[in-house]
């Protein structure tokens, strides 16, 4: 277990380093950040002073060296635009994104899993065909379009749900959340649904194929021969088996939800990491972009670890091999 842990850790470090190099120099290729920061009425001297203050007057190689040096002291640099430490900016926004991702993931499980299992149990019913057709739609419709449609229908035409923002937040254990008030739920409903749509479709497919496979297994027949009720067979025997692949996929999907909710956050003006990233890219705010990438990589590594642990909880066969190794 320990050696496995170190291997993972080493991989993560390598990925982070590679990403830093790419992003750091990549941003410079796009343009010199300094031109985004100055205002037209600044004179040459003021520009030079700004550049010097941000360390942008030095050659790129030297800038990189300073950045790495700061990294070892736990300093990811300050945002050019906001003047705050980049990492704090991101962590400050992370809560909102996490909340959105969790809400979307829950939706995927609550809606997708039962639908998929139903379709797997009764593949020939018309309802199942409808579900499957719906999931194809969910896969192929572009997120931004669905987001706009959701706003059109639910906010503009029916006027049930707010189209933008996060609503009022409460602070619990130092974390801001909007999940404690009805108003907060109303605000998160649309963006979460938009984000979840793809995952619901994915979930339906996974649950369906898993269920169909499990249904054909001898242990299901044996369970029937034991005289178990069909509901028990589905809940205990089938569900437990299909959860194994589902957990893996969902875990990774959660990572991508957090990291790439950019589109949804932009459409619904959700004040999360994705929106921050977009602004940072527009303004070539290099420290924020780099910090963002690092956070995402760390997040993925962390999620992978959790998946592996969950995996061994769900699948006893994994536990055994782990103990032997």
């Amino acid at each position: 277990m320990l050696s496995y842990f170190f291997r993972r850790f080493g991989q993560a470090i390598f990925v982070i380093l590679a990403m830093i190099v790419l992003v750091f120099f990549g941003v410079n290729v796009v343009g010199d950040p300094i031109w985004m920061l100055i205002s037209p009425e600044m004179d040459q001297q003021a520009i030079a002073a700004t550049a010097a203050a941000l360390g942008l007057d030095k050659p790129i190689g030297e800038q990189f060296f300073f950045f790495i040096k700061g990294l070892f002291q736990g300093d990811l640099g300050r945002s050019f635009v906001h003047g705050e430490p980049a990492i704090l900016l991101i962590l400050g926004r992370m809560g909102a994104t996490m909340e959105l991702a969790i809400a979307a993931l829950l939706m995927a499980i609550i809606i997708g899993l039962p639908l998929g299992m139903y379709a797997g149990l009764h593949p020939d019913r018309r309802a199942s065909r409808t579900i499957m057709a719906g999931s194809i739609l969910g896969f192929s419709l572009p997120t931004f379009w669905v987001g706009l449609m959701l706003i059109m229908i639910f906010s503009v035409m029916i006027g049930w749900l707010p189209a933008s923002g996060r609503g009022p937040t409460d602070t619990v254990l130092g974390i801001q959340t909007s999940l404690l008030s009805l108003e907060g739920w109303r605000h998160i409903a649309l963006p979460a649904l938009n984000l979840a749509l793809l995952k619901i479709s994915l979930m339906i497919r996974l649950a369906r194929s898993g269920t169909r496979e499990a249904m054909s297994m001898d242990y299901v027949k044996f369970a029937r021969a034991k005289g178990l009720k069909e509901s028990v067979i589905i809940r205990v025997h089938i569900l437990k088996n299909i959860l194994i692949p589902i957990v893996t996929v969902l875990g990774l999907e959660f990572g991508s939800l957090v990291a790439f909710s950019v589109v949804t956050e932009t459409i619904f003006s959700w004040p999360g990491m994705g929106k921050l990233l977009l602004e940072a890219i527009q303004r070539l705010d290099r420290p924020v972009i780099v910090a963002y990438v690092m956070v995402v990589v760390v997040l993925f590594v962390f999620i992978n670890l959790i998946i592996d642990i969950l995996y061994s909880v769900l699948d006893p066969r994994v536990r055994l091999t782990e103990a032997k190794a």
């Binding site: 001898d218 242990y219 027949k221 025997h237 699948d315 006893p316």
Partner: peptide
């Protein structure tokens, strides 16, 4: 009932 393949009749995760 007892089935043919004992490797398959017991649910692996229970």
């Amino acid at each position: 009932m007892i089935f043919q393949d004992p490797m398959m009749t017991l649910n692996p995760v229970l």
